[in-house]
Nucleic acid binder design. Structure first.
Length: 187
DNA sequence: TAAGTGATAGTT
DNA sequence: ACTATCACTTAG
């Protein structure tokens, strides 16, 4: 079943942890792509590392929408990263999807990633977007809308053990333990 | 470990 | 206009 607004409209840290094991689905033109989320990070407005720390801008405005919207930003001149908005409207919080484990549509993923081998296809936030074909065009869509071709689903995967660590690639507020990872799942 | 890449936001 | 920074990836 599809995850709806109440799931996302909770404390960011909680949503980040509970998204581990949920499935990111995209019903693309080329076919269905599904993957188990196995790494996330939390970002809130009172957090110096967050895009929203200094308030609303053109770039981050989606993070101030209602929980369950998709925030996609462009960075380092070549990469997109996908986030899911959390908490109440106007709070500027989101969860970054850092990694997934491909379940379905692996051929499409390989093609999108321009790779032959199945190694390191989706273990990084930029890689996940490239694998799913997500770009700026998808910024701001509502994942909880039943018409949306992109959504999250609970297929019953249970993380074996959730690791909690510091976040990656940030220069401020480095010590906060807001990164969640699981290597294995049971169903 | 380091270079590549260009939009973004803030400053002149 | 100019500049610093950037929630990254890849190759070496």
């Amino acid at each position: 079943m599809r995850l709806l607004h109440p799931f996302f409209n909770r404390q960011t840290e909680t949503v980040a942890k509970e998204l581990i094991g949920k499935v990111l689905v995209y019903e693309s033109e080329e076919g269905i792509i599904k993957g188990i989320i196995n790494e996330t990070e939390a970002y809130t407005q009172d957090d110096e590392a967050s895009h929203t720390f200094k308030g609303k801008t053109k770039r981050n405005e989606v993070m101030f929408k209602e929980a369950g919207h998709l925030y996609i930003y462009f960075t380092y001149g070549m990469h997109f990263c996908a986030n899911i908005v959390t908490e109440d409207e106007n709070t500027g919080c989101a969860v970054l999807i850092r990694s997934i484990i491909p379940l379905e549509g692996k051929e499409i993923i390989k093609k999108n990633r321009n790779k032959e081998e199945s190694k390191d296809l989706t273990n990084g936030p930029g890689k996940v977007c490239q694998a799913y074909g997500l770009s700026k065009d998808y910024n701001g869509i509502d994942l909880t809308d039943h018409k949306s071709k992109i959504y999250l689903e609970d297929l019953g995967f249970i993380p074996k053990k959730i690791l909690i660590t510091k976040r990656i690639g940030i220069s401020k507020n480095k010590d906060r333990l807001w990164r969640f990872i699981s290597k294995e799942f049971t169903s």
